[in-house]
Amino acid sequence: MFGNILSDAEIIRLRDSHLLTLEPFDVKRLKIAHYKLAPRTVWTPVTTIDGKPSKRQEHNFEDEAQFVFQPNAYHLFEVEETVLLPDGVVANFVPVSEFALRGFSLVAGMLDAGYGKLAGRTQKLFFGVKNLLDEKNMFDRNFGLAHMSIVSLTGASLLRQELSKAELGRLAGRDPERWRRANDDGVFYPQ
C-alpha cells in the first residue's frame, strides 16, 4: 500500500495541531480528499545572458482576477498558499477540471515529506500552465489551479533509497543551486 490519502477532517486535524502548514487556508476550498490551490502570480520563464534559467513577473491576481494567455503560451504560476509538509507526508497534484474545458494544461509534480523549508527559508510552490489553443485564452483566478491530495506514509514500510556513484556524479555536475534543491530527505546520499 502506498499510504493513505488524508480526508478533509484529517487535513484540518494536522493543521490545527501545527504539523501541516497550509496558509492562507479557506475551508470552502477543502473537499473530501483534496484542497484546491489558488494562483497568486504569473511569471514568464526566461534565460539570462549567462544561460541560467530565470523568470519575469507578468501578472498579480491580487490586482486583477483574469490573465490573458497569448496563443500557445507557457507561464509559471506561483501558488497563493504556503505548504509545509511534516515527515511521513507527501502531496500530489491534479489539474482542476476547468483546465480541460478551457484548453489549459498543468505541469506539476509531487511534494516530498519535509517540503516547505530550505536553508531556513520558506519554499514557494510553482506550476507550469500552458495555453493549448492557437488563440488567446482567458485564465480566471476563480478556476483555481490544482487539487492537492495529501498522502500519509506513516506506518507504511519504506525502503531507504541510495544513489549509485554514477548518479551521484551526474547530480554533482549540476549547478550548485539545483544540487542543493535535489539534496533533500527523499534520497540517502552516502558520504
Score class of each variant (00 low, 15 high):
A9R: 13
A9M: 05
I11L: 01
I11R: 02
R13G: 10
L14G: 11
L14Q: 12
R15H: 09
D16V: 09
S17Q: 12
L19V: 08
L22D: 02
L22K: 01
E23H: 11
F25L: 03
F25H: 11
F25S: 10
V27L: 06
V27T: 11
K28D: 14
K28W: 06
L30F: 04
L30C: 01
K31G: 07
H34I: 00
K36N: 10
L37T: 07
R40D: 08
R40F: 02
R40K: 08
T41D: 00
V42T: 01
T44S: 06
P45Y: 01
V46P: 03
T48H: 01
D50F: 05
D50K: 02
K52M: 10
K55Q: 07
R56P: 04
R56Q: 06
Q57H: 03
E58F: 00
H59P: 06
A65G: 00
Q66H: 14
Q66A: 15
Q66F: 13
F67M: 00
F69C: 05
Q70F: 06
Q70A: 12
Q70P: 04
P71W: 11
N72Q: 09
A73Q: 15
Y74R: 10
H75R: 11
H75F: 08
F77T: 01
V79S: 04
T82M: 07
T82I: 07
V83H: 01
L85H: 10
D87H: 15
D87M: 10
G88L: 05
V89F: 08
A91M: 05
A91K: 02
S97C: 03
E98S: 12
F99N: 07
L106S: 04
L111I: 07
A113F: 12
A113D: 11
G114E: 07
K117N: 13
Q123A: 13
F126D: 03
F127N: 04
K130R: 13
K130M: 10
L132S: 01
D134Y: 14
F139G: 00
D140V: 00
R141Y: 11
R141G: 03
F143E: 05
L145N: 10
L145C: 09
L145G: 06
A146G: 06
H147Q: 15
H147W: 03
I150M: 05
I150W: 08
I150K: 02
V151I: 15
T154Y: 06
A156R: 06
A156S: 14
A156V: 14
R160F: 07
E162P: 03
L163E: 02
L163T: 03
K165P: 15
R170H: 12
G173A: 15
R174H: 04
D175F: 12
D175N: 14
R178T: 13
W179Q: 15
W179K: 07
R181T: 08
R181A: 08
A182I: 03
N183Y: 09
D185V: 06
Q191R: 13
